[in-house]
């Protein structure tokens, strides 16, 4: 049995200390691409939390009950990517039918998430670190929360910087990357937490 203390440590370390974007570089595309406005960034973050938590639950169950039972662990990459792609499609269809309000809010972001390498990354990390299903779900949730925290902060900074006067070559992408670098330095400070 995993006790609460272990789960809490995973929660802090996955969301802050080894932040998925700023120290592991997973999910960079949405991080850089959907961070122009705080509201859209928050929407993307919510959708990512939803999908990653669900995906780590499903992939955890499949790994335990199918892959390990039949000793075909080496197929994990293929199985996980297909499961995630199917899951995202399914979630999208389900939300469209059952919860139109939520679909309105998250629908735009869902197709983008399939290609978000953070989802596959979390599923694989859970297997690599031999987390159980509950621990895996907590890890997935914490990772996604870390993603949301950093994308919302970056969006806030970008809104502030939008009309600042940069050298022409640094306008746009380079400035965003520099900001992300400075945020990464700040997040290094969290390593003292554990």
């Amino acid at each position: 049995m995993t006790d609460i203390k272990d789960l809490f440590i995973i929660l802090v370390s996955s969301s802050l200390v080894s932040n998925v974007v700023l120290s592991q570089f997973l999910g960079l595309c949405p991080f850089l691409g959907v961070s122009k406005k705080t509201s859209t960034a928050a929407g993307m973050g919510t959708a990512v939390i939803f999908v990653i938590t669900l995906a780590s639950a499903v992939s955890g169950v499949i790994y335990k009950d199918v892959l390990q039972r039949f000793h075909i662990e080496y197929l994990q990459t293929i199985v996980f990517i297909l499961v995630i792609a199917a899951l995202v499609q399914f979630v999208e269809m389900f939300l469209k039918k059952a919860m139109p309000a939520l679909y309105e809010a998250l629908g735009v972001y869902l197709p983008l998430i399939t290609t978000n390498c953070a989802v596959l990354g979390v599923a694989l990390t859970n297997v690599q670190k031999e987390y159980g299903i509950v621990t895996g779900i907590v890890n997935g949730f914490a990772t996604a929360v870390g993603f949301t925290i950093s994308i919302v902060i970056l969006a806030g900074l970008r809104e502030k910087m939008e009309h600042n006067d940069f050298p022409e070559s640094f306008k746009g992408m380079p400035m965003v990357l520099l900001t992300a670098g400075l945020m990464a330095i700040a997040f290094c400070g969290f390593s003292g937490l554990l």
């Binding site: 700023l22 570089f25 640094f170 992408m173 990357l177 992300a180 670098g181 990464a184 290094c188």
Partner: peptide, 12 residues
Amino acid sequence: APGAFFVLAALT
């Protein structure tokens, strides 16, 4: 990690 962002920023 931060160095990666800085190098890529310089590149872009």
